[in-house]
């Protein structure tokens, strides 16, 4: 195991950022720390980097006890959300910084900087100042700078958080390819589940200072340990006493066995998908209950494709039958599952 975190607790005053967290992050893989803001994932990353010290617990990097090492002795590369570019240095100087600190020979440094700038596609900007680069370019520069020192692990703290949606998407694909090329153990923090699912080999879900689940993107998506993980990885809705994804619900305009009757209350089209809010008929459809106002009835969110919507002529006020799609994963509501142990996953 490349990075081993064991029993780490960190408090900021009364606020418990990390509560006895233990996790192993495997060598050579791209791991995402995923969770809501304030959940402790950045704190964990900063403790691994040595930028923050744990109140208790230990950190081991590649077998070396690192708990009390200062950041400059841990040989980790760190990439910040807001780039932390050295503003008074050119792009090339930024990348060369770690090598110059290590007093590498000048020609070796120059060669390495050139290679890295090629790798991040910034060769033509070598002599510019960071202020003359776009956000995405600055972040690529920061990545090259972190890689220059050949770190044992590369840590990225919300690396694409400050970029606009399109650049963010491009950069995360690029990060995935880069990782396949360089294959350095990489840990990145994100609150964007799509980013984690798309890029990571392994995802650690952190919430409220505790680890909720560790697993591959598929494991997490298909077998969420609890309703928190399920709802954090994507939209969920409630049907028949269990949590299910809105696109895992079948809609039909004719009665089907096992389907629940309801009325399309609202319809919102977003690009290729159509989001329906369906007000369900009460289970025991008594005369009085069916007369109750539609807004007080239980509703379920359903996502269908635009094509389906057209095909079924779905519109607001229409009566439909909804049922779980066969093979869809549903989690019992408020499932009380045994606390998922990170180290066991």
């Amino acid at each position: 195991m490349s990075i081993n975190v064991s029993g780490v607790t960190k408090k900021f005053g009364d606020f418990v950022a990390l509560d006895d967290v233990s996790v192993d992050l495997p060598t050579g893989q791209l791991t995402a720390l995923l969770g809501p803001s304030g959940g402790g994932k950045s704190t964990l990353l900063r403790i691994i980097a040595g930028l923050e010290s744990a109140d208790s617990g230990t950190v081991t990097i590649e077998g070396n006890e690192a708990t009390h090492l200062p950041p400059q002795k841990r040989n980790v590369g760190f990439v910040f959300q807001h780039y932390a570019a050295f503003k008074h240095m050119s792009v090339a100087k930024n990348v060369a910084f770690g090598l110059e600190i290590r007093k590498r020979p000048k020609d070796e440094t120059a060669r390495r900087v050139h290679e890295l700038l090629e790798l991040v596609h910034l060769s033509q900007f070598a002599h510019r100042l960071p202020a003359q680069l776009s956000g995405g370019q600055r972040q690529r520069m920061a990545l090259a700078r972190a890689l220059a020192v050949e770190p044992t692990v590369l840590l990225l703290d919300e690396p694409f958080g400050a970029l606009d949606a399109k650049v963010r998407k491009e950069l995360r694909e690029w990060l995935r390819r880069l990782h396949d090329e360089v294959a350095v153990t990489t840990v990145f923090v994100t609150h964007d589940q799509e980013e984690a699912l798309e890029v990571a080999d392994e995802i650690v879900v952190i919430n409220d200072g505790r680890i909720e689940q560790v697993g591959t993107p598929d494991q997490l998506y298909d077998e969420p340990a609890n309703d928190f993980v399920m709802s954090f990885l994507g939209p969920v809705t409630r049907l028949g006493g269990s949590l299910v994804r809105p696109h895992d619900i079948d809609v039909s305009t004719t009665e089907e066995p096992g389907a629940v009757r309801g009325t399309v209350q609202r319809m919102l089209r977003v690009g290729f998908e159509v989001r329906l809010t369906v007000a369900l008929e009460p289970d025991h459809a008594g005369a009085a209950a069916s007369l109750s106002a539609p807004t007080e009835r239980e509703t379920v969110e359903v996502t269908v494709t635009r094509a389906t919507q057209r095909h079924l002529h779905l519109e607001e006020g229409q009566q439909v039958w909804v049922a779980h799609t066969e093979g869809a994963r549903a989690v019992p509501e408020r499932a009380v599952l045994p606390t998922p142990l990170a180290s066991g996953a």
């Binding site: 040595g50 932390a84 050295f86």
Partner: peptide, 12 residues
């Protein structure tokens, strides 16, 4: 942040 970045790159 710039100072932290420098530290993580090996500067004392």
């Amino acid at each position: 942040e710039q100072e932290q970045a420098a530290r993580s790159l090996g500067a004392n």
